[in-house]
């Protein structure tokens, strides 16, 4: 009965959304902004992957805000778990898992770094690469029972990444009068690894920030909050 009422209510809400979609219909072409990005983005920022170009430069200020939302959620998790500790697990992993834990994070980190570094050329960028790096950290955490060595560097890495993101933005503001202007570095030939201005640098900053925040959440789950 309760499920049926909830179903009717949810159906009403979804029909409301569908009616709103009906008013402007199925998309027929690119919007004005997207048309500009698709037409000029290749020359303006020198990036092949338009999604990374939009995330990092055109909408870079929004990304800065979204990364700070992520920071707020992660720090809330760490704060709650350090105020109310839940105790640590006592099970000891077997030797096969311990050996795999030593071998496998290297290739996974390499793959994550590849995704971050080639963000302007192939699908990828800071957010997917950071998630892949965080899953390598998850593998390390699964095999340990006490404190892990990299946990104390997470705060430092996170704040340095955020600081360098903001500083790269201010560099454009000081040099060319526009926050996060991409032309402060040489644009290079599109298609090469060292091209597209500051997009690889900002991708690396976003990747380090996302990876350190997600693995900070996982470390807090495993070990019950930070030290400080």
């Amino acid at each position: 009965m309760r499920t049926f009422i909830a179903f009717l209510l949810a159906l009403y809400l979804v029909f409301f959304a569908a009616a709103a979609f009906e008013s402007f219909g199925e998309p027929q072409g690119l919007g004005r902004i997207a048309e500009h990005y698709a037409a000029e983005g290749f020359e303006e920022v020198g990036a092949i992957n338009l999604v990374t170009a939009v995330v990092v430069t055109y909408r870079g200020l929004d990304t800065l805000g979204e990364v700070s939302v992520l920071f707020t959620a992660a720090s809330a998790v760490i704060l709650l778990l350090s105020v109310f500790p839940l105790g640590k697990p006592a099970n000891k992993p077997s030797s096969i898992v311990l050996l795999t834990m030593k071998v496998l994070p290297g290739p996974i980190l390499l793959f994550g770094g590849y995704i971050i570094a080639h963000g302007h050329l192939t699908p990828g960028g800071g957010f997917p690469g950071g998630a892949v790096v965080a899953s390598a950290a998850l593998l390390v955490l699964l095999g340990c029972t006490q404190e892990v060595g990299f946990a104390k560097w997470l705060t430092f890495a996170e704040s340095m990444a955020g600081f360098s993101f903001a500083m790269l933005g201010f560099w454009g503001l000081l040099k060319l009068g526009q926050f996060l202007n991409n032309s402060v570095l040489f644009l290079g030939i599109p298609g090469q690894l060292l091209s597209a201005g500051i997009i690889p640098l900002i991708s690396a900053a976003i990747g380090v920030k996302v990876a350190s925040e997600l693995s900070g959440i996982l470390v807090a789950y495993r070990c019950g909050g930070g030290k400080e």
């Binding site: 990005y37 995330v55 957010f127 998630a131």
Partner: peptide, 17 residues
């Protein structure tokens, strides 16, 4: 259109946090 994809890319990561 690349703009909704860029939006969703950040939305997924924020959603998991």
């Amino acid at each position: 259109d690349p703009v909704p994809q860029a939006l969703v890319l950040t939305s997924i990561v924020i959603g998991v946090a």
